[in-house]
C-alpha cells in the first residue's frame, strides 16, 4: 500500500461564468521516502491538486474522487481525525515565506507552538528542539533567531524557518508548493538541496510542485507533468528527461533558457494560451498549441496510458518518437 493514493480526483471551482474544472481526473501514488515532482505552468491545477490532498480547498470548491493517506480516505474522515492526521503526518511549505509566516509572532513561538500542541512537548523541551531544528535547516546563531520576527530575516532565511516549522512534527509527507519561486536564484539551489537532504534523512515522502522542469531534474524520483488540470505525462525522472513523449513536456523543456546558447537567442515559447477551463475543448487540451496535432487530436481526450514502457505514461496519440540510444 502506498503512503498516498490519489484516485481520479476532480476539483470544480464555482466562478461567475460557470464551473471551472481546476483538476480533471488525476491519479497519483507516492510511496514513503519517495519524491514526486509535479510540473506545470500557472493555472495547470498543480496547486489545487496539493490543496485537495490536504483538504484545504477553497470553501465552495467541489471535490470528487478518493485521496487515501496511509489507507484512510481523507475526503471521508471526520474533521477531528483529519486535524490530527494533518498535525502528525503532513506538512506544507509555501511559495512566499513572507506570507506563510505570521508577521506578529516570533520565530520561536511559531516553531514551538505546533510541537507543544500536537506532540505534548513542554515549553523548555520545545525550545531546545526548535533551536536544533533551526540549526538543522542551516540558520546561523539559532538561539538568537528564536526571538526574531519574520521581517528581521531575509527571504531565504524565512523559507528555512518555514521548512523548520513544517518539519517540527516529523511529517510523513511534505508538500512543497513552489518553495523557491519567490527566492533569489542563488538561494533557490540551497533551499532545494536542503529539502532533498531532509527528505532523505527523515525518509519522508515529498511532493515538489513547481513550474520549472530544472527544479525537479535530479531531485525527484518521479515526475508528473500537468496541463489544464490533467496529468499529461508521468515517468521516472531520468526516463522523462531522456525520452519525452508528450509534445507539451518537450515544449516546456525547450522553453528553458540554455547557458550555452549564443546571445540574443529567442526562447522557443509555447504559442497560444491554455484552454478556457470553464469551456474546455472536447479533444486534447494541448492540441490547439501543439506542433504535431492533427484532426484526430481534436476528437477525444487521449487517456493517460503506457503503451511502450512500463511506468512511462503519457496522454497523447501523436507522441514524440522514442530516441534510440546511439
Amino acid at each position: 500500500m502506498s503512503l498516498l493514493e490519489v484516485e481520479n480526483i476532480v476539483v470544480d471551482l464555482p466562478t461567475p461564468r460557470g464551473m471551472l474544472r481546476a483538476v480533471d481526473g488525476v491519479n497519483l501514488t507516492l510511496d514513503a521516502g519517495r519524491t514526486l515532482g509535479v510540473v506545470g505552468e500557472s493555472g495547470s491545477g498543480k496547486t489545487m491538486l496539493s490543496r485537495a490532498i490536504l483538504q484545504l480547498l477553497p470553501r465552495r470548491a467541489k471535490l470528487s474522487g478518493a485521496i487515501r493517506f496511509d489507507g484512510q480516505d481523507m475526503t471521508r474522515i471526520a474533521p477531528e481525525t483529519l486535524r490530527k492526521l494533518r498535525a502528525k503526518s503532513v506538512a506544507v511549505v509555501f511559495q512566499d515565506p513572507m506570507t506563510s509566516l505570521n508577521p506578529v509572532l516570533t520565530i520561536g513561538s511559531q516553531l514551538t507552538e505546533t510541537m507543544r500542541e500536537h506532540l505534548g512537548v513542554p515549553q523548555s523541551e520545545a525550545i531546545l528542539r526548535g533551536v536544533a531544528l533551526l540549526a538543522e535547516v542551516g540558520i546561523p546563531s539559532p538561539e538568537q533567531r528564536m526571538g526574531n520576527y519574520p521581517h528581521q530575516l531575509s527571504g531565504g532565511m524565512r523559507q528555512r524557518v518555514a521548512i523548520a516549522i513544517a518539519l517540527s512534527c516529523a511529517p510523513k509527507l511534505l508538500i512543497a508548493d513552489e518553495p523557491t519561486t519567490a527566492l533569489d536564484v542563488t538561494v533557490q539551489a540551497q533551499i532545494l538541496d536542503l529539502l532533498a537532504r531532509e527528505q532523505r534523512s527523515r525518509h519522508m515522502a515529498m511532493m515538489l510542485i513547481t513550474h520549472d522542469l530544472g527544479v525537479v531534474a535530479g531531485r525527484t524520483d518521479e515526475v508528473a507533468v500537468m496541463y489544464a488540470g490533467r496529468v499529461v505525462e508521468r515517468a521516472p525522472t531520468r526516463e522523462l528527461f531522456h525520452h519525452m513523449r508528450m509534445p507539451y513536456t518537450a515544449a516546456l523543456m525547450a522553453a528553458l533558457p540554455k547557458l550555452d546558447a549564443p546571445p540574443h537567442t529567442r526562447l522557443p515559447a509555447i504559442g497560444g494560451r491554455p484552454p478556457d477551463p470553464i469551456n474546455p475543448p472536447p479533444g486534447c487540451s494541448f492540441a490547439p498549441r501543439c506542433f504535431y496535432a492533427d484532426a484526430a487530436c481534436d476528437k477525444a481526450k487521449p487517456p493517460l496510458s503506457a503503451p511502450d514502457r512500463m511506468a512511462h505514461q503519457f496522454a497523447c496519440i501523436r507522441p514524440l518518437p522514442v530516441k534510440v540510444a546511439a
Binding site: R86, K88, H118, I165
Partner: peptide
C-alpha cells in the same frame, strides 16, 4: 494569508487559528 493555511495544514483547529494566528494580527 498563507500562514493561516499553513497553520491549518499543520492541524490547527478553529480556536487556535483565531486566537493564536489571527488575534495578534
Amino acid at each position: 494569508r498563507e500562514f493561516v493555511t499553513a497553520a491549518r495544514a499543520l492541524g490547527a483547529g478553529h480556536a487556535r487559528i483565531i486566537l493564536k494566528e489571527l488575534l495578534p494580527n
